[in-house]
Write a protein that binds this DNA or RNA. Structure first.
Lengths: 180, 180
DNA sequence: AAGTGCCTTGGGCACTCGTCCAAAAACGGT
DNA sequence: ACCGTTTTTGGACGAGTGCCCAAGGCACTT
């Protein structure tokens, strides 16, 4: 089954990207982690970059879907912010998911194709947030969505270095002020 | 003058980190950019990592000082947010400074010594912000500082992928609500 | 039994990497 | 002019890289 090998490789990639950095993942460590022979990497994928891109975009899409589903269940803007924060707090410490997001963002700087794909995922996330905000009477829904998405990423990034204060949620709630 | 060579190397490093990624900077391209022979890298620095760390921490410290000085001149919280945003907007597009910050943050994941040094710089920035907020009557100054610092980083990161709406500044101003 | 695909293996290719080092050069004091 | 120190040079070392490919294994049809 060739598909099994593909899945094993794309499944092993995100963890290694986080551990070693995007540029630190080599065909051989990736194959070893996936329990597969190094030669298979270039049989199933056109290049190592293509493999990493496919794996990262898959993980990002899944994350956005999860956060989106979580959003649907919230009743109020405050509850939405709260829910996203607690969901992300499970990723605390040197969270794999946030590091993967950041690594992927940086990789887009040097790969135009990847940049396009990740841009779509981010735009999709912003659009979902904005739609939900508009429905629930939050002022400036698009801008709020953009700022909130950026803040979430920034907090995840900073968290690895310095824990954020407890009151961060309180402050964040100010962002989603309901239109007066 | 040995010091001239040191400066040339640490001066060339940040640009290359942004262009090629932290892991993509090699002794030879760095030496070439600095107009220096490759062998000199390991004469003046104990390792390539040490060179990159020293250069990055220097650049970060300078950035925090600049933003801190800008903060001192602001009269109101709104003006402070405005000033920081416009200062950062000069870095628009694929801004070198924000990418350097992010690259350095990620590098801390795999270098404990660097993590400590960058953590200090970030803590210093948060402390300056918080002190200024407390003086000007912003509610929850520490938490606001943490969230704002994260948001600034996140916006810079996202900006390379997707331009943020004009109204982002309006939304950000909500963050620095004055204590009621 | 022979043939036909796809999948897998293990090694090889040309290259870059960080680091080191002997020898050459430049410098400064006498 | 000589000498000791610091700086610079250019090349070498072993290790690791992405990618490629001839050879074999395997499940299937004919």
């Amino acid at each position: 089954m060739g598909t099994r090998v593909r899945e094993r490789l794309t499944g092993a990639a995100p963890g290694l990207i986080v551990e070693l950095g995007w540029a630190g993942v080599s065909t051989r460590v990736l194959a070893e982690r996936a329990g597969v022979t190094p030669g298979l990497v270039h049989y199933h994928f056109s290049s190592l970059q293509a493999l990493l891109s496919e794996a990262a975009i898959g993980a990002l899409t899944r994350l956005v879907d999860d956060l989106g589903a979580l959003l649907e269940q919230a009743k109020s803007p405050e509850e939405a912010v709260e829910g996203m924060l607690t969901a992300l707090s499970e990723y605390s410490g040197s969270d794999p998911m946030s590091l993967l997001v950041t690594e992927t963002f940086l990789a887009t700087t040097r790969d135009a194709e990847l940049r396009g794909a990740v841009g779509e995922v981010l735009a999709d996330f912003r659009a979902r947030l904005a739609a939900w905000f508009a429905e629930h009477g939050v002022a400036d829904p698009e801008a709020t969505a953009a700022v909130l998405a950026a803040t979430v990423d920034g907090l995840l990034l900073h968290r690895a270095l310095l824990p954020e204060p407890e009151a961060a949620a309180t402050v964040l709630r100010r962002l989603v002020a309901v239109r007066s």
